[in-house]
Design a binder for these strands. Structure first.
Length: 874
RNA sequence: GGACGCAUAGCUCAGCUGGUUAGAGCGCUCGCUUCACACGCGAGAGGUCCACGGUUCGAGUCCGUGUGUGUCCACCA
């Protein structure tokens, strides 16, 4: 049965249908198969609150390309999907929604709130999954997971208990980063530093004995309410006499000491620093070293508390103004200078974080980081591009303990219980009574950092801590595909977690891509509204076009701009393929042609097969090296420039011949088109399936068809070279005609003088067709009087000159060609005459240059002859 | 204060371990209803590969310095 294809490809109609067929066929499902090698990718789980954006589109396109390629290579390829509960982000959204209804978390209580959160998950968790499907993602949906599901919870509890028992998780009172908006602690990694215009205020603290004062400088004057010392550098001669003295803290009246600590830099500010142990990480350390009192002057909302005296109740920023005004009034403010300084903000809500002392749970990092450093140094896990490995190592080598407890409800609850007797019980199973005294225990109200559960994602999703078949077969995973912004948050933590809990790295390669930016190079953001919606683009151009445009020109680790024009170009390419397939289909008889007969292959058949073969080999190499941008460019060039522009054009002549010639050319057309469909399938999954299904094929789906590989039997370099002689002649004739402004409708009889008589004779019909000739005569030589000449290294084509051709222009044209060839030859000869070149350069390179020289000499000879005969004829 | 990326055609970008006449897409110019495709066909124009120095027979590619630009890390109050 022959199927007729419409003139333009309609992706919106085809994609949904094809995706449904794939799902129905179960092709996404990876089977455990001891005959096959596994290839595993776990998805970076998108947030349940999220909507698909261009960054997701890129990330998932890259993953899908790799997984589809490996699947076609015969691997048991598993792409394991899922979503992330994203504790802070999700909780914040739910709280905001509740606020619109006039509700607070406390109104609902923990149970009620969690019920709402799970409802939210049900509504929105599925949304992004549907969007991933629109992109064509071939995830194994039967294995879909959620970071807060039961299995992940089991893994989290197991890990927590295990680390606790090893002493790698501890609870303690430390200075942590606190977000006064999210009302939770956050880790160091979750603080972003932004440079802000601030001030440097110089203050005067009078000595208690009235003998003068000492000047300090600060960017946060409101914290002076909690000052418990002034520190100077012990080496600083200006101040050595004052060490041990005390000052009276202005506005507060507290007597505080002047201490010496080498942390203070002599040359910065005034050389004397006010010390607020409760509100600055450095001051905290200084406080410990000197046994200073810690006076917390702020609430969790960053409002001055009762320790702040008259300023109690003011926000930290209002308190700053008020304190400054009072200091100024009291003559304590000496100088105000503008200063740029780094301010830490919460990565979720951009609120300025407040360093606070608080009792939290921590992961002790040093013992976990050491093997994670080693693994990357030894190359057990490799970063692509490599430079990100250095960034990872630098971070890992300087890591500090990880604050993992969060004062949130949406997340994995910390499996720790406290008894009135002072006993702390950490248990994966719920407990009710204290094992020591039998008293009632209360569970820690806090939850864990979202990234604590994502850190386990590569193995928790495969069934760990159970010793499952999936885990044994698919772990460690192969490739992790993600953007550079979450190397610390996620990648690093997966690596040390994998090593600690499974004894193996969680993945062999980390493939890092850049950020999608808008057409002006700006970051895409919701507030700017500059991020095109991938779903709209898919609707408009098709998922294939979007995917293709996202990998074209993409190089690992580099950012990329989004251009609708680029997607349009990709859409045009898809349409080009569509029409190539249409052309083939229109020319097939009732029955599919039998495979081509190798002995009957003509030169152009060998040419196209050889080209295809080489490109297939190269593309596999590129994919192996994660050079997806290069791979996609090669397929594009082959399909368009080689196959469509030349082979199909040549085939048109042959399809009008009889018998075996037709069958064979049809067979080659089908073979190559089928090959293109397979080669391109990972990049453009939908249209390639549609084309593959329409043309003769074996198998159910192109998804499971073998990926083209280099085949030595298809390497016809001699034929390639010969057909290129023909192509060169055709191009030269076209060029000549264009310069003479001859319209294509005006055919001319072409005479070709060449040494390759047999070759040109055989290809004469193609030359006739592709060079707009009325006919072709091949000769050993030709006098050429009154003719224009198209010169190639192997032939001179003569076109009859009529009134359209200006002999003077023709002379100039030939002269130009001659000059250019001579100039090139001069540089090549210079190289060849250079002895150090011929001696030191690799033989192949020298040989190359020799051939180039030969070719150029030919051109010069031919052009010279042509010029001479033209001269004689004018 | 460290570390890193980028600087190549009008625009956006490729260019792997040094050797091609430096490429692509878009844009531009000229010509074309050539029986798959105007989402097309054919022919073109357009580049001191940021600057300077070095290594080499040979550098867009490697090294150094500088300029511009971007990012990450870092406790200078």
């Amino acid at each position: 049965m022959q199927k007729q294809l419409s003139k333009t490809y309609e992706p919106s109609e085809a994609e949904a249908r094809i995706y449904a067929d794939w799902e129905r066929g179960g092709y996404f499902h990876a089977q455990i198969d001891s005959e096959k090698q596994p290839y595993t990718i776990v998805i970076p789980p998108p947030n349940i609150t999220g909507q698909l954006h261009m960054g997701h589109a890129l990330d998932n396109t890259l993953q899908d390309i790799l997984i589809r390629w490996k699947r076609m290579m015969g691997y048991s390829a598993l792409w394991l999907p899922g979503t992330d509960h994203a504790s802070i982000a999700t909780e914040a959204k739910i709280v905001a929604r509740m606020k619109e209804e006039g509700l607070t978390k406390e109104d609902l209580g923990r149970e009620g709130f969690l019920k709402r959160a799970w409802e939210w998950k049900e509504v929105y968790g599925g949304r992004i999954i549907q969007q991933l499907k629109k992109l064509g993602s071939s995830c194994d949906w039967e294995r879909e997971r959620f970071t807060l599901d039961e299995g992940c919870n089991r893994a989290v509890n197991t890990v927590f208990v295990r680390l606790y028992e090893k002493g790698l998780i501890y609870r303690g009172e430390r200075m942590i980063n606190w977000c006064p908006h999210c009302l939770t602690s956050i880790s160091d990694a979750e603080v972003e530093y932004t440079e802000k215009e601030g001030h440097f205020w110089h203050l005067r603290y009078p000595f208690s004995d009235g003998s003068g004062d000492i000047q300090v400088a600060t960017t946060r004057p409101e914290t002076m309410l909690g000052d418990t010392a002034v520190a100077v550098n012990p080496e600083d001669e200006r101040y050595t006499a004052f060490i041990g003295k005390t000052v009276i803290l202005p506005l507060v009246g507290r007597e505080i000491p002047i201490i010496a600590d080498s942390y203070v830099e002599k040359d910065f500010g005034t050389g004397a620093v006010k010390i607020t142990p409760a509100h600055d990480p450095n001051d905290f350390e200084v406080g410990i070293r000197h046994g200073l009192p810690v006076i917390n002057v702020m609430t969790e909302e960053a409002v001055i508390n009762e320790n702040g005296g008259k300023y109690a109740g003011l926000s930290r920023f209002d308190a700053r103004k008020s304190v400054l005004a009072d200091l100024d009034a009291g003559g304590f403010l000496l100088k105000t200078e503008p200063m740029k300084h780094n301010v830490g903000v919460c990565y979720r809500c951009q609120t300025v974080v407040e360093p606070l002392i608080s009792k939290q749970w921590f992961v002790k990092m040093a013992p976990l980081a050491a093997p994670a450093v080693e693994a990357v140094k030894k190359g057990e896990t490799r970063f692509v591009p490599e430079r990100f490995g250095k960034i990872y190592l630098h971070w890992m080598e300087n890591i500090r303990d990880w604050c993992i407890s969060r004062q949130l409800w949406w997340g994995h609850r910390i499996p720790a219980y406290y008894c009135g007797c002072g006993e702390v019980i950490v248990s994966a199973r719920k407990i009710t009574g204290c094992p020591k005294c039998g008293g009632k225990v209360t569970r820690d109200p806090d939850t864990l950092d979202t990234w604590f559960s994502s850190a386990l994602w590569p193995f928790s999703t495969l069934g760990w801590p159970e010793n499952t078949e999936d885990f044994n077969y698919f772990y460690p995973t192969d490739t992790l595909v993600t953007m550079y912004d979450i190397i610390f948050f996620w990648v690093a933590r997966m690596i040390f977690s994998g090593l600690e809990h499974t004894g193996q790295v969680p993945f062999k390669t980390v493939f890092i891509h850049g950020m999608m930016r808008d057409e002006l190079g700006r970051k895409m953001s919701k507030s700017l509204g500059n991020g095109p919606d991938p779903l709209e683009e898919i609707e408009k151009y098709g998922a294939d076009a979007l995917r293709f445009s996202l990998v074209t020109g993409n190089s690992p680790g580099n950012d990329m701009r989004y251009y609708a024009e680029k997607v349009e170009a990709s859409r045009n390419f898809a349409n080009k393929l569509w029409n190539a397939a249409r052309f083939i289909l229109m020319n097939l008889g009732e029955n599919p042609p039998p495979p081509y007969l190798p002995d009957d292959l003509r030169i152009e058949d060998k040419w196209v097969l050889s080209k295809f073969n080489r490109v297939a080999g190269e593309i596999n190499e590129n994919l192996e090296k994660f050079e997806l941008g290069l791979a996609v460019e090669k397929i594009h060039n082959f399909a368009w420039d080689v196959f469509c522009d030349w082979y199909i054009e040549v085939s048109k002549t042959r399809l009008r011949e009889d018998g075996q010639a037709v069958e064979n050319v049809a067979a080659v057309l089908v073979w190559v088109m089928n090959g293109i469909a397979r080669l391109l399938h990972p990049f453009m999954p939908f249209i390639t399936e549609e084309i593959w299904q329409t043309l003769p094929h074996t198998g159910e789906t192109v998804m499971l068809a073998p990926y083209p590989q280099f085949d030595p039997a298809l390497d016809f370099s001699a034929a390639e070279q010969n057909f290129e002689r023909i192509m060169a002649a055709i191009q030269a004739i076209r060029n000549l005609r264009a310069e003479m402004k001859v319209p294509p409708s005006k055919k001319a009889h072409v005479t070709i003088a060449t040494e390759f008589g047999e070759l040109f004779e055989a290809c004469a019909p193609y030359i006739t067709r592709l060079a707009s000739a009325s006919g072709v005569t091949v000769a050993k030589s030709f006098s050429g009087e009154g003719y224009a000449r198209a010169v190639t290294p192997d032939a001179v084509a003569y076109l009859p000159v009529d009134e359209l051709c200006d002999p003077a222009a023709e002379t100039a044209r030939l002269q130009k060609e001659l000059d250019s060839a001579r100039a090139q030859l001069a540089t090549v000869n210079a190289k060849l005459q250079n002895e150090s070149f011929t001696q030191k350069a690799p033989p192949t390179v020298v040989e190359n240059q020799r051939e180039t020289a030969k070719r150029l000499e030919q051109v010069i000879k031919k052009a010279q002859e042509a010029l001479n005969s033209l001269g004689s004829s004018v």
